[in-house]
Design a protein around this nucleic acid. Sequence first.
DNA 1: ACGTTAAATGTAGTTTAGTTACAGTACGTA
DNA 2: TACGTACTGTAACTAAACTACATTTAACGT
Lengths: 282, 282
Amino acid sequence: MNILEKIANELDTFSKSERKVAEVILASPNTVIHASIAALAKQANISEPTVNRFCRRLDTKGYPDFKLHLAQSLANGTPYVNRHVDEDDTADEYTAKIFESTMASLELARKSLNTTTVNRSVDLLTQANKISFFGLGASAVVAHDAQNKFFRFNVPVVYFDDVLMQRMSAINSQQGDVVIVISHTGRTKSLVEVAALAKENDATVIGITNEGSPLAKECNIVLSVDVAEDTDLYMPMSSRIAQLALIDILATGFTLRRGSKFRDNLKKVKDSLRSSRFERKE
Amino acid sequence: MNILEKIANELDTFSKSERKVAEVILASPNTVIHASIAALAKQANISEPTVNRFCRRLDTKGYPDFKLHLAQSLANGTPYVNRHVDEDDTADEYTAKIFESTMASLELARKSLNTTTVNRSVDLLTQANKISFFGLGASAVVAHDAQNKFFRFNVPVVYFDDVLMQRMSAINSQQGDVVIVISHTGRTKSLVEVAALAKENDATVIGITNEGSPLAKECNIVLSVDVAEDTDLYMPMSSRIAQLALIDILATGFTLRRGSKFRDNLKKVKDSLRSSRFERKE
DNA sequence: ACGTTAAATGTAGTTTAGTTACAGTACGTA
DNA sequence: TACGTACTGTAACTAAACTACATTTAACGT
């Protein structure tokens, strides 16, 4: 574990003097890695051996070794944190925050995603007679994107962001069809109903949603991605990015499963677009 | 710069003995960071001062400082790299690669995005009488998402992913309207024409596209995000994620500019969705 | 409240590691 | 071949880190 986090975590298990050291370190770790044990002791108003004992308590061999660990923690740069946008942030600030939060979410999503489930989903998708993507609101965007990707595979694929169309489509589904229902919360009533309908009609229902949600209960497979709390109170942000990454993953798994011959097909689709574009000048 | 790379780069500028040290370090940097200067000297079959001189040549204060830098290089662990998916990757592998590539792209996008331009775009958006988002293919998804976000702001906003609708809408645009045209390559003919049409009709055209592309030339403002080469040869992946992050940024800037009273409005929109959802059980 | 004991902290001395100054060696050039 | 420069090593020195022990502080029981 990152030694800086460790210090922060164990702050209350430290003795009085040790806490002094800890606080100095946490306040400006970048200075500390260039300071001698004497300098650090002085700054924390404690003796050198106390610093040394502090280092040992953190499972390092001594002060130099501790500095090494500290340097490594810093290099990791407290990677990406979900930081909330502030009322008086400048364009510079909120831009940075949104990028960071997005990345923090992806990091989290990566960790939480179950690749065995991914694999099973890809299995099902490759065998499907027809693939449908359903979503509403922000999740409709994800469904839209999924259609876009799977359409290139030359498989029957549809996407609906309209409640009625979703219902009709679900009712008409049958065995061999795969229905992917997308909802971050998994609590949108009409989508839960659509999932149930599709299941009743023997379609395989894959949910891209929260584990344990009402929607999840109606699904044969649940692909859940944990996501950092949304940066903006009122708009879904990170959740849909993680979902899109998941779509990429499914699409990639799909092409890999289909083998290299299949990929020639993709090339054809791409080439077909060429005439609609301006040539790139060298 | 990463000190390990630096050593590798400058290998041929080193003297004979220095190269010996360099090679030992490159061979097993992880051992070196825990070794004393004496141990390292012995392993490289050279004297201690030579190691010291080696450290100085690399712009460090001495051996301990050098070890610090080395430790940081190692911790950095080549953060996020754009890694291409391989024919025989397992689900585990391609999942990891896609997440990593996506994050690498966001990292790149963050660096390349000009926040002054973002700020100007937000300015224009807040003053717009009507906002239109146009995109095709993968970029249609981004436009779709943008509509979703800006719709909550209770401003007139439309999105079209149909060429004819885009043309009609562009022709009907007028001064005070803002048209946002989205295209990764910026070379899609019909979109370039739409941008030109909108501009002729005195709308302000903002392009989310490649700087220097045909589309960029037709725009009043260009929001360009550099993006790592796409992981998949035949499908856009990272580009649209970066574009979506940009939409988040614009939307966030928009709400911030409109002030806190405006945000109550967003709450209302969100609350209005409540009845369509299952209650969360505690 | 007082004394006892254990834990925590500091002081001083020791050891180890790192650095500097200088001397010797190797190599290239005139 | 002789000279000079750049490189490398030896030995002395300095500074940093650590250990052992003394002192203080805090906690607990009487």
